[in-house]
Design a protein around this nucleic acid. Structure first.
Lengths: 142, 142
DNA sequence: TAAATATGTTAGGGAGGCCTAACATATTTA
DNA sequence: TAAATATGTTAGGCCTCCCTAACATATTTA
């Protein structure tokens, strides 16, 4: 039993981490707003996070992390950050799109690929990236 | 109405394209095997591909592409290939994992990021990639 | 050609993840 | 403090994508 977190679960953890901003208490309403879903859906999802021992919450109360939950959330966040940075610095993808892509890629990408990104970023060698011809490349996909 | 293909639909198209290998006729059984799903699921999925005008099929007959279907399938394939190549050549990810990642990433990645990969690959400058320290990078994720 | 096997379909179901509507509880404010 | 508003929950439903079991059709082969 590996208890792999679903993409949705990871998104919830990420948003809760962001909203908690250190250790603020996080409300269902805000989670729902951040994820652009109905409050009822957030309530339901949080119930499963509770079942999985990732967060704590009393009826009508705020959501807080368990140790495990916080650990997982930070892992997701780190992965997101690496991808985002890689896309921006190496592939010259603009911030907003890099962020969106990271949001989706973070759920499916292997540790090896992430490691590749990390290693690449550590080189800090972006001369090649400086003059990527994205316009031209975009046309190839038509 | 953009009629965006779902990840599952794209996977079906990709597998059908691969199995058709030019223009061989493709059987439900083979599609199911390739995707590791039940035949019944394949049948059902193919029905929706038919509804979307992507493939043709008669009862108990083989699956063939429509023009639209073939076009879409080749688009997916091209995207897959670009990602796979990028992961292998630039990030030094091994073939099998690169392929798996490509399979998942191809459904979520933006045209901009793909363009970045294409542009990067066109530079053909892999010196930096030659000595990426993946071992070390892997540890960062713990 | 009849039986065995391979292939395809139908029916019914389940889990995940979302929705709306209605209701319950808390908090704010007049 | 009573009413208004904000917040949270419950119930029921929908869609996607998968499953198994049972059945239908085709194809092979003895």
């Amino acid at each position: 039993m590996v208890n792999t977190l679903t993409p949705a679960t990871q998104d919830y953890l990420e948003v809760i981490l962001q909203l908690s901003n250190g250790d603020k208490s996080v409300r269902i309403t805000d989670i729902a707003k951040s994820l652009n879903i109905a409050k009822a859906s957030a309530t339901q999802a949080i119930d499963t996070l509770i079942d999985e021992g990732l967060v704590l919450k009393e009826k009508y109360g705020p959501v807080t992390f368990t140790e495990k939950g916080k650990r997982e959330a930070m892992k997701v966040k780190k992965t997101h950050k690496i991808i985002r940075e890689f896309l921006m610095k190496v592939l010259q993808v603009e911030a907003e799109i890099a962020d969106q892509d990271a949001c989706l890629m973070e759920h499916v990408i292997s540790p090896q690929t992430i490691a590749g990104m990390v290693a690449f970023l550590e080189k800090g060698n972006y001369e090649i990236s400086a003059d990527l011809n994205l316009e031209k490349a975009l046309k190839i996909l038509k």
